[in-house]
């Protein structure tokens, strides 16, 4: 293949995953935590697609699509939780949300 080899893709995926981890650990707003989670899922997807190209098997791409569906489900539930929290006038701050009781 002309152009960059698979190690370059994996390097970008690793960097992107670490950026997502930093976002999840550092930020307090649940919205930004969800966005950082999306970055981590997409970094995994990039690694899947890269390895799929390396081995010439399309199973990795199939799994990347499955990850996309799971991410959509996660966003659906996560945003539902955030809206429910906002309606109960809870602070949108993961550091103060320490109880699970409704």
């Amino acid at each position: 293949m002309s152009g960059p080899g698979i190690p370059w893709y994996l390097a970008v995926a690793a960097l992107l995953f670490s950026i997502g981890v930093a976002g999840v650990l550092l930020r307090r707003s649940p919205l930004i935590v969800l966005l950082s989670l999306e970055i981590m899922l997409n970094a995994a997807n990039l690694a899947f697609v890269g390895f799929s190209r390396l081995f010439g098997e399309m199973d990795g791409q199939v799994f990347a699509l499955a990850v996309m569906a799971v991410a959509a489900a996660e966003v659906c539930v996560g945003l539902g939780l955030i809206v429910a929290m906002a309606r109960r006038n809870l602070a949108l701050d993961v550091d103060t949300l320490t109880e699970l009781r409704g």
Binding site: R28, I82, V83, L92, D95
Partner: peptide, 18 residues
């Protein structure tokens, strides 16, 4: 995501670190 952020309005503002 954008709809929810718009719905939350000012409450969604997130000063950056915790």
């Amino acid at each position: 995501f954008l709809f929810v952020i718009a719905y939350l309005g000012g409450r969604a503002d997130a000063p950056w670190a915790g």
